[in-house]
Each structure stands twice: as C-alpha cells, then as structure tokens.
Design a protein around this nucleic acid. Structure first.
Length: 342
DNA sequence: AAAACGGGGAC
DNA sequence: GTCCCAGTTTT
C-alpha cells in the first residue's frame, strides 16, 4: 500500500463524486454501458447522453430485444457505431447465454463483443471489485507524469504495470480504479493539468513538465475525399429518400442521405438514378473523420418513382420525422444545409 | 504493427 | 482552427 495511492484514495473519498453511471451498489449493466459509451468519448459528452440512452434501454433485456436500427438510432451522434452494434450483440449474448447475468470474471468478459482488455478489467473492478489491469489513457497519462516517463507508454509497458499493481495493492480495486479515473479527469488532465491542487504533487517527478507528458506519437495526414449527396424528394416535397448503409465500413448500418462513392477525385456528374434530373444546389458540406476529410456536393432531385430495389431498407421518410430518425452528424449537416437554403 | 473507426467539447 | 478522449476490431 503505497503512500501515493493512500493519499490519492483519501482525496477521492473526500470528493465523494456523483456520476450518472455510478451507484453505491454498482449495476453491471450500467457499468458496462458507461464503459462502452466512454470509449474514446469525453466525459462531458457521455454525461449529456447516458441518461437518455438508459431511459430507452433500462436493462439488458430491453436492449437485447430491440432492433439494431433502434439501438443505432439512439446512439446517433456518439460516433464509433461499431460500439452500438457490438453493444446490441453483447446484450443478446448476455440474455441468451448468461440468462441476463453478467459474467464476473475478466476472461469471460473479454470474450464478449466490444469488450477489450481495458473494458473487461474495468467492469471487473467497478462492478465486481476484482483486480486487473484496467489501463486506459488516464492511467497511462498519470503514470507517465509521476514517473517522468519520457517515451511513448503502451498497455504493456512493464514499469506501468508495476506502478499500477503496487498502487492498487491493499485497496479495493473498485475504489482504486475510480480514484485514478476521477483524478485523471479532474486534476491530472491531458491539457491544463491542475498541479497546484494535486494531492500527490510532492511525489510527482514530472510535475514541472506535466503538460508535455505522456509523449505522443505523430499522426498521419488525412486523405481528402469527395462525394455527391443526393437530396431526393417526392413531388410535394414532404418526403425525402433515405437508405441504410451496409454493415461494413464507415457509418455502417446507419440511415443516410444517399451519397456516391467517396473518391479521391470528384466525379464529374451525379451517377445515381440516371432518370432523375439532378440539379446542383451549390451547397457543399465538409466533414472531418478521424482518418479522412470528406467534401460533399449536394445535388437535389424530385421523383415519384418507387425505388424499392434501390437499397436495403430504403424508402421515403417524412421530412418532419428527420429529427427523430437518429442520423449521423454528417447527415445532419446535409439536412441542415438544405433547410438553410430554404 | 498499423489502419479503420466519429464526433463533441474545451481551448 | 487544434487536441483529446474510461478503446476495439480488422487488416
């Protein structure tokens, strides 16, 4: 039981922090949901979205019995939609194979879709108070600063595992992990760390260069891609044509305003539905993903055609329903551009 | 080992 | 504008 962790847990106990997904007696369903939602997603964003999702799917059974489209609808805007698809699959496995009870050991949790090394250990610690290496970006950052580790930190850096292990020893794994996570979120922040108020500053070897740690690796430039966005309405303009994207690739399974293939070189003409007289709208959308920039030229058209064979689960949707459909943010931008145009 | 996979919030 | 985020899965 190190002096470092004793002070940190004392600090944490005094904070007595209340979070929407944290309860005196942890509910494994809520712990799991929060951990998935928090993957590569900021605390502020999850705080804004967690309760609403939980109201639609209050338990693992309701989530398992929903359709994938319904789960994606309520995940819309959170990004990394494989999380929602895996969440849904995982709920069905929990219900069918585990009779609705979450397994309480790391190896079993690790086999479930969407649960990797970190999340398995985190659920085991927080929901079941079992020890493991729940190494996330907070843990790596705290370690790098406290030991002044001036090389890139990975999940298997031996010094990191030793440090975490030694810190955890003698403490409840749940309280220990929650203390580290809260510390990383509120004081030992990635940017603008609050070193003056740090309860363990005197033990920190890197407090004078905290903001520069951990060492970050260089990132690749993004590809620049181009596409047409096809805004197709029926004769009276009350309905717009939408389709569902395929199960693989970017925004997989999400409802979309149809787009052409995303290409390095912009196509000269719209190619979808040659019978439609596409008009240029002059509206363009720029959207940045993690690994590419997409530029969308929006063209509009009108038809009464029945287009059932056009794609999976495609069809006319009332324009008035669009806000409730759960579109990805790129698609919301396209809709917004068409409305602003009038 | 590297790439794919989103988007919002803070500065 | 930039940067980061309670990572996982696929290639």
């Amino acid at each position: 039981m190190s002096v470092f962790s004793t002070k940190l847990l004392k600090w944490h106990h005094v904070q007595n922090r209340l979070l929407p997904w944290r309860e005196a007696t942890p509910d494994p369903y809520k712990v799991w949901l929060a951990e998935i939602m928090l993957q590569q997603t900021t605390f502020a964003t999850v705080t804004n979205r967690f309760k609403a999702f939980l109201e639609w799917f209050p338990d693992v059974e309701s989530l398992a019995s929903a359709s994938q489209a319904e789960v994606l609808q309520h995940w819309a805007g959170l990004g990394y939609y494989a999380r929602a698809r895996n969440l849904h699959r995982c709920a069905q496995i929990i219900v069918c194979k585990y009779h609705g009870i979450f397994p309480n050991d790391i190896p079993a949790l690790r086999t479930l879709p969407g649960i990797g090394d970190y999340t398995a250990a985190a659920i085991a610690a927080i929901a079941f108070d079992q020890s493991g290496y729940a190494i996330d970006s907070n843990i790596k950052r705290i370690f790098a600063r406290f030991t002044r580790y001036e090389k890139p930190v990975t999940e298997r850096t031996p010094e990191l595992l030793d440090f975490f292990d030694h810190s955890q020893r003698g403490h409840s794994p749940r309280h220990h992990l929650e203390a580290w996570l809260d510390f990383g979120e509120t004081l030992c922040r990635a940017r603008n760390p609050d070193c003056p108020n740090c309860p363990v500053r005197e033990h920190c070897l890197g407090h004078d260069i905290a903001e520069t740690l951990p060492i970050k690796t260089a990132k690749k430039p993004r590809r620049q891609l181009h596409a047409y966005g096809y805004w197709l309405t029926n004769a009276d303009g009350m309905c717009v044509w939408l389709r569902r994207r395929p199960q693989k690739g970017l925004l997989a399974g999400m409802l979309e305003i149809p787009t052409s293939d995303w290409q390095e070189k912009p196509a000269q003409h719209p190619h979808l539905l040659p019978a439609v007289a596409w008009r240029k709208t002059g509206q363009t959308i720029q959207h940045r993903f993690t690994h590419l920039d997409l530029n969308v030229d929006i063209v509009s058209g009108t038809t009464e055609q029945c287009l059932d064979s056009f794609g999976l689960e495609s069809g006319w949707y009332p324009v008035a329903d669009i806000p409730r459909l759960g579109l990805a943010s790129l698609m919301k931008k396209i809709v917004g551009a068409m409305y602003s145009k009038g």
